[in-house]
Simulated assay, not measured.
Amino acid sequence: MDSKGLWVLVVVGCAVAMLPVASVGAVADAGATGAMVQEDEEPVEREELDEADEVHIDVSLTENGSATFGVDYRYFLENENNTEAEWDELTNDIEADPEAFAAAEMDDWDEIRADGQNATDREMNLSNATISIDESTAPRHIGHVQFTFEWSSFAHVELTEITAGDALPGFTLVDGTTLQITGPEDYAVHDHEPTADNTEPNAVYWDGAGTEFNDDQPRVVFIENGDSGAEVTEPDEGPPTTWLAVAAALGLLATGAMIGWWLRHGRSDGPDPGGDVTASPSPPEGSSNNAAGPPPELLSNEERVLRLLEERGGRIKQQEVVAELDWTEAKTSQVVGSLREGDEIEVFRIGRENVLSLPEEDEE
Rank of each mutant, 00 (worst) to 15 (best):
S60D: 02
V59F: 02
V305Y: 01
E320Y: 08
A203G: 13
L298C: 03
F222D: 07
P20I: 01
A114W: 14
D72G: 02
E310P: 15
D40I: 05
G314C: 00
V305F: 02
P284I: 05
A203T: 13
P43S: 02
G229N: 15
N225Y: 12
N289Y: 09
D227R: 12
G313E: 01
V174F: 03
E47T: 04
G351F: 03
H192C: 10
A26V: 00
P194N: 03
Q334G: 07
L339G: 03
H192Y: 09
R264I: 09
P43E: 01
L358Q: 04
I57N: 06
A22D: 01
R315S: 03
A17K: 04
S132T: 09
S152H: 05
L179D: 04
G70M: 14
S136I: 12
L90M: 05
E297R: 06
E344V: 13
Q334Y: 06
G5I: 11
R74K: 08
R140N: 15
R74C: 05
R140I: 12
L61W: 00
E311D: 08
V24C: 01
E361M: 08
T278V: 11
V220Q: 11
T195E: 10
I142Y: 02
P283F: 03
G208Q: 11
N81V: 05
D115N: 12
S136A: 08
G351H: 03
A103N: 15
R349V: 03
L61H: 00
P283N: 04
S338M: 13
S280F: 09
A129E: 10
E111K: 09
R267A: 08
W243Q: 14
V220H: 10
I181P: 01
G208A: 09
E302M: 06
G208K: 07
A85Q: 10
S153C: 13
E78F: 02
A323R: 15
I345Y: 05
V44M: 00
Q180S: 13
I345C: 04
D227G: 14
I57V: 14
S127Y: 02
S60F: 01
A188D: 15
A35N: 00
L252Y: 05
L339V: 05
N289G: 13
Q319D: 15
V21I: 02
A323I: 13
D191S: 10
D276E: 15
E341P: 05
W7K: 12
H156C: 13
D72K: 04
A245V: 09
